[in-house]
Structures are given as structure tokens and as C-alpha cells.
Amino acid sequence: MRNFFKVLVIIITMFLGKSLNSFANLKVGLVLSTGGLGDKSFNDSAYRGLEMAKKDLGIDFKYVEPKNSLEDEEFLREYAEAGYDFIIGVGFPMRDAIENVARDYPELKFAMIDNTTSEENVKNLLFRESEGSFLMGALAAMMSKNGAIGFVGGIDIPLINKFKDGYEEGAKYINPEIKVLSAYIGGTSAFSDPLKANEMATMQIKQGADVLYHAAGGSGLGVLEAAKDNGIYAIGVDSDQDDFVKGTVLTSMMKNVDIAVYNTVQSILNNEFIGGDFYYGLEEGGVGTTDFRNTKDIIGAEKIERLKLIIEKIKSKEIVIK
């Protein structure tokens, strides 16, 4: 009987060890969007989510930085052929590439950020950018002295217009007469051209805009610089950009890609992974503001409290964003 229990203990220990090792050895491949690491935006946020998963959950991961979208499928396929368990593509241009590779490797798990596909082994991580941008517009309108604010986007597409439209709607919720200027960078380097973004922002400032918001990835840093150089306020996006120009950046519209990535890794380890669309808004902690650590006194407690009230009204559907 003692020998039986010894054998049983050994078997259980081996099973648990194998199970834990399989979790620890989960291999994740990350294909970043154009602009790569250091964009202080959604690429950095996706990477941060995997860093958190590595620390907390013991996964292994690697990442690549494509020079352009033509390399996306090549890198995704390399990860699949190398036997990675979970592969992530960052950015809406990844759709066709992820769809093609996921279809060829149905046994693997994929995630796509900011776009959607019907492939059953792909989890589409989507965000309610219009909710967070509504808050940014409301703040911009409260802080504007000229009655004019600006927006610089990467490309004129539905995803970026969710930022713009939410921003404009939030601003007009505060001041129905406010003027909202908008411009798009465009071209093949729309999300990695801070010089062009700076030029567009400067043009809006000359037209009277005294608060600027961007949805342009790494290009948006040029918008923040233009605000600093002209002594007006700006609002960051995707990641916490408040410290980029302290006192100039009022807050950042946090798009918590890191939380979505981390949660997806956790769902795989818990055998709870499901493909399909998953939305992250204010209610899910997917979007929001920063803590105003550099600008509490500049904005003032009254305006911050008003923003908090707006958040609760959006969550309760008292404010419905069109």
C-alpha cells in the first residue's frame, strides 16, 4: 500500500509539473504595427501587456517590428511555422495577413488588435475609442479659451474617425458652439511621421485651436511638441503620454491594449480562450483618462469632478455616444 501511494504521488507530481511547465512555456509571438516600439502608443502598450504576462504568468514571448505592412504575413507565418502557441497582430492593417495565417493553422490561437475577422481561432480585441475620446473632447472644451480645438489623425478611416467623432461630440456636449479643426497625415508613414503631424498641428494653432488631440501613433508626438512650442495644451492617446511634455499634456486617452493582451494570455492558460469580437470600453476598463498627475492644479478639481460625472453617465447610458 505504501508503494502504491508513493507511485501515486510521483504520477501526480509529474502531471502537475508537466502542466505547470506547459503554462510556463507558452510561446507568444507579437507582430507590431508600423512604427514599432518606442511609439509611446499602442505598440508599446501591447508589448507592455506581454511583459506583464511574462512576469506574472511565466510565458515566453518574442516580437518583431515590420518595416511595412507587406511584411506582416511573413512574420505571422514564421511564428506559426516555429510552433508558437499564441500569435498577436497589432493594428487594423493586419486583418488579411492574420486571416490567411489563422486559416492555415487552425490549431493555433491568434489575436488581432483593432480589426475583426470571422476566423474561429482569432480573438478580435476591439476598443470603444469614441467613449474615451468623448471625455477628451469634453476636457478640451472646458480648457479652451478661444472656442476652437484641434484633432490630428493618422488616416481618414472609420477606426481613426471613432477618435475624431467622439472628441467632437464630447466637446459639443460642453460647448455646442465650439469649433473643431481636423486633419489627417495620410501616406505610407501616417503613424510614424511626427514632422508632418507637427506641421498640421501648427497650422491648426494658427487658426485659433488652443487644445490639440491626436490619434496618430508615433506621429502624434509631433502634435505634442507643437503644443509645447506654442504654449497651448495637448492631449495624448493610447498610452500614458502625460510626461512627454509635463504641464502641456493635460491627460491621455488611455487605450489599454496591455490589459486586453494580458487578459487574453490568461484566458489561454485557463483554457478559456474563445475567438470572436471582444470590446473594451469605459465599463471594462479598456479606455479612460490618466491620473492628471501633472495637471490637477492646471485643470482644477471642479473640471475633473465634472469629467468623473460624465464617465458615470456614459456607463449608465444616460449619455449615449452616437
Results as ranks from 00 to 15, higher is better:
residue 4 F to G: 03
residue 4 F to H: 07
residue 9 V to I: 08
residue 13 T to I: 09
residue 16 L to H: 02
residue 18 K to C: 12
residue 28 V to A: 03
residue 29 G to M: 02
residue 30 L to G: 05
residue 35 G to D: 13
residue 36 G to W: 04
residue 41 S to L: 09
residue 42 F to Y: 12
residue 44 D to R: 07
residue 45 S to Q: 13
residue 45 S to K: 12
residue 46 A to D: 02
residue 52 M to Q: 15
residue 54 K to D: 05
residue 54 K to H: 06
residue 59 I to W: 12
residue 61 F to H: 13
residue 61 F to C: 10
residue 62 K to N: 15
residue 64 V to A: 05
residue 65 E to H: 13
residue 67 K to Q: 15
residue 71 E to F: 13
residue 74 E to R: 15
residue 75 F to Y: 15
residue 78 E to Q: 14
residue 78 E to T: 12
residue 82 A to T: 10
residue 83 G to H: 10
residue 87 I to N: 12
residue 88 I to W: 11
residue 89 G to A: 03
residue 95 R to M: 13
residue 95 R to K: 15
residue 100 N to S: 15
residue 102 A to T: 14
residue 104 D to H: 14
residue 107 E to L: 10
residue 109 K to Q: 13
residue 109 K to S: 11
residue 109 K to A: 06
residue 112 M to W: 09
residue 115 N to M: 07
residue 116 T to S: 14
residue 116 T to F: 13
residue 117 T to L: 09
residue 119 E to R: 14
residue 119 E to L: 11
residue 120 E to Q: 10
residue 121 N to Y: 08
residue 122 V to K: 08
residue 126 L to G: 05
residue 128 R to P: 01
residue 133 S to Q: 01
residue 134 F to R: 09
residue 134 F to T: 10
residue 138 A to Q: 05
residue 142 M to C: 02
residue 145 K to N: 07
residue 147 G to V: 01
residue 149 I to P: 04
residue 151 F to A: 01
residue 151 F to V: 02
residue 152 V to M: 06
residue 158 P to S: 01
residue 160 I to F: 00
residue 160 I to S: 00
residue 160 I to N: 00
residue 162 K to M: 12
residue 164 K to D: 13
residue 165 D to G: 10
residue 167 Y to T: 12
residue 168 E to H: 12
residue 169 E to M: 15
residue 172 K to Q: 13
residue 174 I to C: 02
residue 175 N to C: 05
residue 176 P to Y: 06
residue 177 E to D: 15
residue 180 V to E: 06
residue 180 V to K: 04
residue 182 S to L: 01
residue 185 I to M: 06
residue 185 I to C: 06
residue 186 G to V: 06
residue 189 S to E: 07
residue 190 A to D: 02
residue 191 F to K: 04
residue 192 S to E: 06
residue 192 S to M: 04
residue 195 L to G: 12
residue 198 N to K: 14
residue 199 E to S: 05
residue 201 A to Y: 04
residue 201 A to N: 07
residue 211 V to D: 03
residue 220 G to Q: 15
residue 221 L to V: 14
residue 224 L to S: 03
residue 230 N to S: 13
residue 231 G to D: 11
residue 231 G to E: 11
residue 231 G to K: 09
residue 232 I to F: 02
residue 234 A to Y: 13
residue 235 I to C: 08
residue 236 G to E: 08
residue 241 Q to I: 04
residue 247 G to N: 10
residue 250 L to M: 08
residue 250 L to R: 05
residue 251 T to F: 09
residue 252 S to I: 05
residue 261 V to P: 14
residue 266 Q to N: 13
residue 267 S to W: 09
residue 272 E to L: 11
residue 273 F to I: 03
residue 274 I to C: 11
residue 274 I to V: 14
residue 275 G to M: 10
residue 276 G to L: 07
residue 277 D to K: 11
residue 278 F to V: 14
residue 279 Y to D: 10
residue 281 G to P: 05
residue 283 E to T: 14
residue 285 G to D: 01
residue 289 T to V: 04
residue 290 T to L: 03
residue 291 D to T: 09
residue 291 D to P: 06
residue 293 R to H: 04
residue 293 R to M: 03
residue 294 N to W: 05
residue 294 N to C: 04
residue 296 K to C: 03
residue 298 I to W: 01
residue 301 A to G: 01
residue 302 E to F: 00
residue 303 K to P: 02
residue 305 E to A: 02
residue 306 R to G: 01
residue 307 L to W: 00
residue 308 K to R: 00
residue 310 I to R: 00
residue 311 I to Q: 05
residue 313 K to R: 05
residue 316 S to D: 02
residue 319 I to W: 03
residue 321 I to G: 05
residue 322 K to F: 07
residue 322 K to T: 12
